[in-house]
């Protein structure tokens, strides 16, 4: 048994860490996401493609690196640390859905090469009583989807419809859906687009476990980075002639950050390993990893705002970027209340 990453995975981790540190430290991520526009950098997107990140889990025959959930978690953990802007996880999930559908190697190759952006459009509701959804007939998709990530930049969308999962060709009629997190570019999409049926909607369910683990890895990165920033601040900021990190009441809050970060790391990588190895309990572990790591990211970033005091409430400090990413993750890639219900169902079924 071994918990540590393999040699290859460690190399990937080191390379990814230095890539994000030089290419998009949090200050750069902020400039990109806080500016008007697409919400990510096309130049960086090209580099992601060249370095193989977009095709990370796609098959080598489709231009991918053929890696698994552990490697994806290694990469997303680093992306989460710097709040890397753009639909990185979303296109990776699209390659997984297209792979499962079969016969879609051309599109997967284009995604991996950075030539096409394809993401999933599967949310039908904003509010519980909304009636939404998309329909497919005669090579055409109609209806609407909400919370489609970076839809205005997408060349194609994977849409769940009454007939099954379809690949719809852009351009799309998008209405931006601004949220608390300025780094997101969610949109409501009104469809009247040409589309091809590629399989039934269970394809999306099959991608869901990977979505949980990917989002959990992003959250783990948030836990780490927000925790480290807080600890640094507590040794620099002085009150009553002493650094505030000397006060036990703050030390214990920061010890809780360690507790949550390390526990998140344990379950996130166990979940990734479980997916890659087809463990029987992978569904329960993936759901739990998403919920625990994202809950932790929210707890840690909120504590971070508090410990940063007045500075934590300013736009200038980075704390709110991590907080807002944590808030976004709470309701996407598996929403909190659904995950809690599914975790319980799995134990009831045991």
């Amino acid at each position: 048994m071994r918990f540590e990453l393999s040699e290859d995975q460690t190399l990937l981790k080191d390379a990814t860490t230095s890539f994000f540190a030089s290419e998009s430290p949090i200050e750069t991520s902020r400039e990109v996401s806080e500016a008007d526009g697409e919400g990510f950098s096309r130049g960086q997107w090209k580099k992601l493609a060249e370095l193989g990140y977009l095709g990370l889990i796609a098959a080598e025959s489709a231009g991918g690196a053929g890696l698994g959930a552990i490697e994806l978690s290694v990469v997303l953990q680093q992306a989460g640390r710097v709040c890397f802007p753009g639909p990185l996880l979303d296109v990776v999930l699209a390659t997984r859905a297209l792979t499962a559908a079969g016969g879609q190697d051309e599109t997967i190759t284009q995604i991996a090469a950075g030539e096409k952006i394809v993401v999933l459009a599967q949310s039908d509701r904003v509010w519980p009583d909304d009636i939404g959804g998309a329909t497919f007939a005669d090579g055409h998709v109609k209806g609407s989807k909400v919370f489609v990530p970076f839809a205005a930049s997408a060349d194609a969308l994977l849409v769940t419809t009454d007939a099954g999962l379809v690949l719809a060709e852009g351009p799309f009629a998008c209405e931006p859906m601004p949220t608390v997190d300025e780094a997101q570019r969610f949109a409501r999409v009104e469809f009247d687009n040409a589309a091809t049926l590629i399989g039934d909607n269970t394809l999306v369910e099959g991608v869901w476990e990977l979505a949980h683990v990917g989002a959990a890895a992003l959250a783990l990165g948030v836990c780490e980075a927000a925790g480290e920033a807080t600890i640094r601040y507590s040794t620099e900021r002085e009150t009553f002639g002493k650094p505030i990190g000397v006060y036990q009441v703050l030390q214990h809050r920061m010890a809780d950050m360690v507790l949550r970060t390390e526990s998140s790391r344990a379950i996130v990588f166990r979940a990734a390993w479980s997916l890659d190895n087809g463990a029987a309990d992978r569904g329960l572990v993936a759901v739990s990893a998403k919920q625990y790591a994202v809950e932790s990211a929210n707890e840690i970033t909120l504590a971070s705002v508090q410990i940063h005091g007045g500075n934590g409430f300013t736009w200038e400090y980075n704390v709110h970027r991590w907080l807002k990413l944590a808030m976004t993750l709470d309701h996407h890639y598996g929403a909190r209340n659904d995950l809690l219900e599914r975790a319980l169902e799995q134990v009831e079924a045991q």
């Binding site: 739990s288 990893a289 625990y292 995950l339 799995q346």
Partner: peptide, 8 residues
């Protein structure tokens, strides 16, 4: 459900 998550 929350207890299940923490237990895992």
């Amino acid at each position: 459900g929350k207890l299940v998550v923490d237990w895992q």
